[in-house]
């Protein structure tokens, strides 16, 4: 029973039978309540979008316009003018983090799930504990090390630091997933003469596609969203990620909130894409990260 099977496809088990009978009549108001709750919850997101289209002269209007009736693309033009390099850097850092994370974590997950390494339990425990360390402490340690090595303000340095956000989680996901691969399959491969590496590469890895997708999504999202490492290790560098782009906007006491919010909207695109395209992986990741060991 691996975590990913929990999510998505299974019908809700909590529906008592007596409600099902009267469902047609009884549930429309629940849908209505659900819509209202969702609207309340997502209001800040709507507001971000609304403000991103608001003209400068309407920005301080009281009460504020609830809809961008006099919408402007001024904010988005500024994003195109000023923020594209930041976005590019963030994408590069995200992809780099994904690569580092998968390459390190997939073999480790395989070992922990299937090869019964000596002291494997301790390693698994360390992975859990590693996730508890506050990012700010890691940042300070990295800062001291990078300063000595001259790695500050470098993209590879930031990739390595960002990967610490994802690697322990990724190992846990891979372990949980690969534990679900039937042992007979690996045994059969061995009987056919495949060695461990071959088994891993040709059988386990292709079967772990879902885990790879989940891990990649989270690794990308976390490094894309990272602010702590970016501001401590990369501040003032030639290639800064988008989180710093937004932060500079705010920090400069910029009053062009349409531009700030437009940048925020653009910076949210990966999250939105992930939600639309891969929602079940996201929920699986949340559940697996917390409930599996």
């Amino acid at each position: 029973m691996s975590a990913h099977s929990h999510v998505g496809t299974r019908p809700p088990a909590v529906v008592p039978r007596w409600t099902r009978k009267r469902q047609g009549r009884r549930t429309w108001w629940k849908t209505a309540v659900g819509l209202v709750l969702t609207a309340v919850m997502l209001f800040p997101v709507y507001w971000m979008i609304n403000v991103s289209f608001t003209r400068d002269q309407d920005m301080r209007k009281s009460p504020p316009d609830l809809f961008p009736t006099h919408g402007t693309l001024h904010g988005y033009r500024l994003v195109l003018d000023q923020q594209l390099p930041y976005l590019g850097t963030s994408r590069a850092i995200g992809l780099g983090t994904v690569a580092v994370t998968v390459v390190l974590a997939a073999p480790a997950g395989f070992a922990l799930a299937k090869l019964r390494p000596y002291a494997g339990g301790v390693v698994g425990f360390l992975m859990l504990a590693a996730q508890m360390i506050p990012g700010i402490i890691m940042a300070m340690g990295f800062y001291a090390i990078y300063l000595t090595l001259g790695f500050l303000q470098s993209v590879p340095g930031l990739i390595v630091a960002d990967s610490t956000l994802a690697v322990p989680f990724a190992v846990l996901i891979f372990t949980a997933f690969m534990a679900g691969i039937p042992g007979e399959l690996l045994q059969a491969a061995r009987t056919d003469g495949a060695g461990t590496i071959r088994t891993f590469w040709s059988i386990v890895l292709p079967m772990s596609r879902n885990a790879i997708v989940t891990v990649s999504l989270f690794a990308f999202l976390w490094s894309w969203s990272d602010f702590v490492f970016a501001s401590t290790l990369d501040g003032g560098g030639a290639h800064e990620p988008i989180t710093l782009g937004i932060y500079h906007y705010i920090g400069n006491n910029n009053q062009e909130w349409n531009a700030i919010m437009a940048t925020a909207v653009v910076a949210s695109i990966p999250a939105a894409l992930i939600l639309v395209l891969a929602q079940r992986y996201v929920a699986a990741g949340v559940a697996a990260g917390a409930v599996k060991d």
């Binding site: 969702t38 800040p44 507001w47 937004i246 919010m261 925020a264 910076a267 949210s268 999250a271």
Partner: peptide
């Protein structure tokens, strides 16, 4: 709707915080 509730958690913190 439950999936939409995930949005705040997926957004970069700097986005949520500045909003």
């Amino acid at each position: 709707l439950r999936a939409l509730f995930l949005v705040p958690w997926l957004l970069p913190l700097i986005v949520s915080a500045s909003t």
